[in-house]
């Protein structure tokens, strides 16, 4: 806080450091209640209740997985049916060509495969990963965000962002340290 303002003009946000996940949840709640919108919390493990505290919700991955599953299922069953009935019909002792019960195992595997791939890819896509450079890496002590510390950063793109008031606000949340993040 002492070393504010005379750095580079580019600022990504102001970050507060905590050592307890419950304090982080409280801080996130207060930040949201105070009217800040463009902020994010960082933790070394999933902290349940944090997304709720930030009023963050995203249901796209389950839906993508669902439609991925439907796609896989249709592909699996459709492809086998097309082979057996149209492209390569084989008469096995006069038995019917559309032997659907025997198509179920591959249909199931195709469903699982496409669901899994969709989920995996959409997780990265929606999280914007891989992203080798992230301004947050410039934050002081941020290498501990993957180990034992918890961070909350209010970003400059927040409409309510004002360096002095944000710094003061974060200091009031019980943070160990408040510092600025160069972009």
């Amino acid at each position: 806080m002492a070393h504010v303002a005379d750095e580079s003009p580019k600022l990504f946000g102001i970050v507060a450091e905590f050592d307890d996940p419950d304090v982080l949840i409280e801080a996130a709640t207060k930040t949201r209640v105070a009217g800040y919108r463009k902020f994010d919390a960082y933790s070394p493990m999933p902290v349940h209740g944090l997304a709720e505290a930030m009023h963050f919700e995203d249901v796209r991955i389950p839906w993508m997985a669902f439609f991925g599953g439907i796609t896989g299922c249709c592909l699996g069953l459709g492809f086998q049916t097309w082979i057996a009935l149209i492209d390569y019909p084989m008469n096995v002792g006069g038995k019917p060509l559309f032997t659907w019960p025997q198509f179920i195992p591959i249909t199931f595997e195709a469903t699982v495969l496409v669901t899994g791939l969709t989920t995996f890819v959409s997780q990265f896509a929606l999280n914007g990963l891989p992203k080798p450079y992230n301004p947050m890496f410039n934050a002081k002590n941020f290498d501990r965000a993957s180990q034992d510390r918890f961070f909350l950063c209010i970003e400059t793109r927040d409409p309510k962002f004002d360096e002095a008031s944000v710094t003061e606000f974060l200091q009031g949340l019980g943070a160990l340290d408040v510092s600025e993040v160069p972009a």
Binding site: P46, F56, A65, T119, F120, Q123, P130
Partner: peptide, 24 residues
């Protein structure tokens, strides 16, 4: 992959992880 442990990332991460567990 540039993982930073953002709460938003964790949220989607857990969704994806649970779905993968569910299909596994």
């Amino acid at each position: 992959m540039g993982w930073i442990g953002s709460a938003k990332h964790w949220f989607r991460y857990e969704q994806a992880y649970n779905i993968l567990a569910g299909i596994s």
